[in-house]
């Protein structure tokens, strides 16, 4: 076998998708659609509200969306591997009350708080991962239990809304850098970069394969247990980060702070087009899905719609997002088949 011949043949094929193919794939995927949706929505918003493009509004929107975006990013990892994680609500509540009950001031305090939040999320994720991957409990049952435990612990620490988050965290982390860049946005950017790295590791590929076809993953030599546990641990750490960012934004503690995140993270994941039966989707799409959700809410409620409707609105969006996701999948698959 001549090496020359091999090389020549090897290059006769494209080894990377062409630019048009890439663009087409992006548009057909959930990511493309949600980006377009967000831009259209923002366009409408800016026509209707002239202050939409000011730095202040952008900062506000970003600060609002960041906790949900990060939590949705974490949830995406579990959904990709074909699971549901309810503990997101518990971890966010728990980290939030800890930051309000034990404020640590100054930049060093912020770093310590962040480390504590990540550690709490990581430990909860490890427990979830153990229950789901090793004991093979259903993810809903296991994470329901850990959610209840975390909620209970939050109530033990802080039995009613109150407490104050350290000033450095609540002021400096919600501010802007160089007058334009929201600092909270940088955290999301960091999550995106980490995801892009993660996607290029054995874990990243494993996540998609395990979600799509666990048997095939196993027969291809992937350590399914490890991938599952890791997805819960990283997901949990992201919930911890989300709790940290939420505390920075609200500046106070609430033992029920995480409750609304349960539904909103799923709505964001579904809006981003991630398949709820696993194996297809993207963390970035979920982040934009979260931003879209918050923007939609802002547009509606800035218009004077009573805030009582928030729940109804979010519920409807969740169901519609899932239906929408199914339709897109169907469309993409049908086109892929012909």
């Amino acid at each position: 076998m001549s090496i020359l011949a091999t090389k020549a043949a090897a290059t006769s094929h494209r080894l990377a998708p062409s630019m048009p193919a890439r663009a087409k794939a992006l548009l057909a995927s959930g990511t493309g659609i949600i980006i377009v949706l967000y831009i259209i929505l923002y366009g409408l918003y800016s026509i209707w509200d002239p202050t939409a493009l000011t730095a202040d509004t952008v900062l506000n929107l970003t600060n609002n969306a960041v906790p949900l975006a990060i939590a949705a990013a974490g949830q995406t990892l579990i959904v990709l591997s074909r699971g549901f994680d309810l503990s997101v609500a518990g971890v966010i509540s728990l980290t939030n009350v800890i930051m309000a009950a034990y404020p640590l001031d100054g930049p060093l305090g912020a770093v310590e708080s962040l480390a504590i939040c990540l550690a709490i999320g990581g430990v909860v994720g490890l427990v979830n991962g153990f229950l789901v991957a090793v004991l093979r409990l259903q993810s809903i049952a296991a994470t329901l239990a850990t959610m209840i435990i975390c909620q209970g612990l939050s109530l033990v620490i802080l039995d009613a809304p109150g407490g104050t988050v350290a000033d450095f965290i609540s002021y400096d982390l919600t501010d802007v850098l160089f007058g334009v860049i929201p600092i909270s946005g940088l955290f999301v950017a960091a999550v995106v970069v980490l995801w892009m790295i993660c996607r290029r590791t054995a874990f990243g590929t494993g996540l998609y394969v395990v979600g799509a076809d666990e048997t095939a993953a196993h027969l291809s030599g992937i350590n399914v247990k490890r991938v599952r546990i890791l997805s819960f641990v990283i997901g949990g750490m992201l919930y911890g980060l989300a709790g940290f960012m939420l505390s920075a934004q609200t500046a106070t503690g609430n033992p029920n702070a995480g409750a609304s995140f349960l539904m909103l993270t799923f709505a964001a994941v579904a809006l981003g087009g991630t398949s709820l039966s696993g194996g297809r989707g993207s963390v970035i799409a979920s982040i934009i899905g979260a931003a879209t959700l918050m923007l939609l809410q802002k547009v509606l409620f800035a218009g004077g719609v009573s805030s009582f409707y928030t729940g109804i609105f979010q519920g409807v969006v969740l169901v519609l997002a899932v239906v929408f996701g199914n339709v897109v999948t169907h469309f993409v698959e049908r086109r892929g088949a012909t």
Partner: peptide
């Protein structure tokens, strides 16, 4: 026999 190739790869 059951082909161990995941469809999304």
């Amino acid at each position: 026999q059951e082909l161990s190739l995941a469809p999304n790869l």
